[in-house]
Design a protein around this nucleic acid. Sequence first.
DNA 1: TGTTAGCACTCCTAGTTACCGAGTGCTAAT
DNA 2: ATTAGCACTCGGTAACTAGGAGTGCTAACA
Lengths: 344, 344
Amino acid sequence: MLLTDRQLLILQVIVDDFIRSAQPVGSRSLSKKEEISFSSATIRNEMSDLEDLGYIEKTHTSSGRVPSEKGYRYYVDHLLSPQVLNQHDVTIIQSIFAEKIFEFEKIIQRSAKILSELTNYTSIVLGPAVSINKLKRIQIIPLNKETAVAIFVTDTGHVENRTFSLPPSVDASDLEKTVNILNERLAGVPLEDLNDKIYKEVAMLLRQHIHNYDLMLHTVADSLKMPINEKLFFGGKTNMLSQPEFHDVAKLRSLLTLIDQEEWIYNLIRNDSAGIHVKIGRENNNSVMDNCSLITATYSAGVENLGTIAILGPTRMEYSRVISLLQFLSKDLTAVLTKLYQNK
Amino acid sequence: MLLTDRQLLILQVIVDDFIRSAQPVGSRSLSKKEEISFSSATIRNEMSDLEDLGYIEKTHTSSGRVPSEKGYRYYVDHLLSPQVLNQHDVTIIQSIFAEKIFEFEKIIQRSAKILSELTNYTSIVLGPAVSINKLKRIQIIPLNKETAVAIFVTDTGHVENRTFSLPPSVDASDLEKTVNILNERLAGVPLEDLNDKIYKEVAMLLRQHIHNYDLMLHTVADSLKMPINEKLFFGGKTNMLSQPEFHDVAKLRSLLTLIDQEEWIYNLIRNDSAGIHVKIGRENNNSVMDNCSLITATYSAGVENLGTIAILGPTRMEYSRVISLLQFLSKDLTAVLTKLYQNK
DNA sequence: TGTTAGCACTCCTAGTTACCGAGTGCTAAT
DNA sequence: ATTAGCACTCGGTAACTAGGAGTGCTAACA
């Protein structure tokens, strides 16, 4: 069943007003709005219909109306007018990229911070996937007789390191030979494929040159097993405290506890498909998130999807503004990254 | 003016009871305790005296008594019976060190987590000072024509890295020579002294061997300027939410916001002197912390003070237990670190 | 002189009542 | 189809009322 233009208008104004005020919207206060030219009685009739259709709800028998999840969904899908960012926001976002960029993590971290400051919601940024970066160089540096640290540098300048036990029989020249072989064979290989390649291609070579090669091999390969997890960055974790829907300490507690579970957040925002996604309330499949919406956007380098930026707020969220901000930031991040990765 | 034994007993029982129940303590409920053998009237008289002396307070005219900051202070300084940790706590703390230790950061992180779980307060751990670690090896790895990444490995296996712009005139052999000279001259030098040493001892050598040595020099030295800050680790940031004194969202907000300001926390817990320190309420010099106490302990390697572990909770904190836990953990951390650093 | 029983008084808390106002649904008039 | 009018609902606030836990003081007691 299709909504009439007037119903659309009323739904839009209700959502807008409730997003602004956090108060249930009544027919009389609606009728006073500029954009509305009909009486409160008419509005009451329309609201009654909208309620029957499930787009709005009452908090109690004689209260004003509040958007339902279905209402928000419709609002996001059909009523959102693409908003142009004001110059102030644009300037602030661009300030993220002002300095010369060497460490991409810094950029990501700053993005999270600024995003949360601009929106007053909680921002979550999933750092670029390191595991698809290609190996530039391996170094193994012995610390003492028993331990050494292996250092992996990617073509993007990211550095991973692992400390491991040296097999007792290995001497300095063995190490050097191993490192040479590894560099020769593994340069340009994505980190996620290293383990595979080591066993398939490097093992044989090592056997020819190194005494006790298998211990060495396993040790190095093992040190790579530890997953190279993308890092999560947060901004404004405490912003939720200023949202009236979280004045209840119990709710607050469960939400903040959830946010602290990185694994869960990781699965939540790790989006398969590119672009902007809006998940409203129960669409997040967790009762703690019932009053929350999550908006995610992806950023990439060239065609390769690299990471996600997300905003977590109450369902009563400024969807239009947040979407614009995410779109803009995602575009900028992609531009910077594409340039960075092209440079190799 | 000295307190009588009976006053001490009463003060102690009041603090103990209030720490447990968070409710003002009345004379009648006190008189029912085992350890107390005199009537409620007597207790009322004594309490009145204790109040005059400033050790306890009323929340309103006819309420029970609550310890004042002065009361807590006296309790901590004189009435605390050194508590023996139960086996359960000991086991859990020791589990931190169960795995083989390569990355000390992991240990620190786990310590923070477990400490907050054992206490239900917020734990803060200041990671070991990296800047006093000695340089084991420098590596410089060019990423492309314009940029390279410098990697600094310490004798403890810690890895720092900095990306920087390559001066246009530098070629591969220059880089190699530079790295060799740096390693030759700087191995064993604490990170915090590197910058100094580079200008004092390495500059001249570089001049002899490298074309355009000064650009190279400045670039490498600059990349070291970025301060190597000790990292802060937190555990149980949300534990405050379950404390009844923070059922007020406004207070909660200001406290959590404060906790998120790393710079401030850094100064708060960065203790000059070794050992356990207890700061109660206003002793922390911040109105947001008026209802909070902070207990800090230091850990070290050999004689060298390395870092701090701290517990932040309400003034109504289980001082005895927390102090025991911190003492125990601090001792263990010190033992592990001392061994680790001895090993070179 | 130190201790205790007794008692009047204070003040918080929880429950009750009353009332106001914003809002609704329905009906009848336009 | 729209709107004015009206009765009704219900949440929120304020005012009031016990009940109870606690205090301070006084007077009796060991």
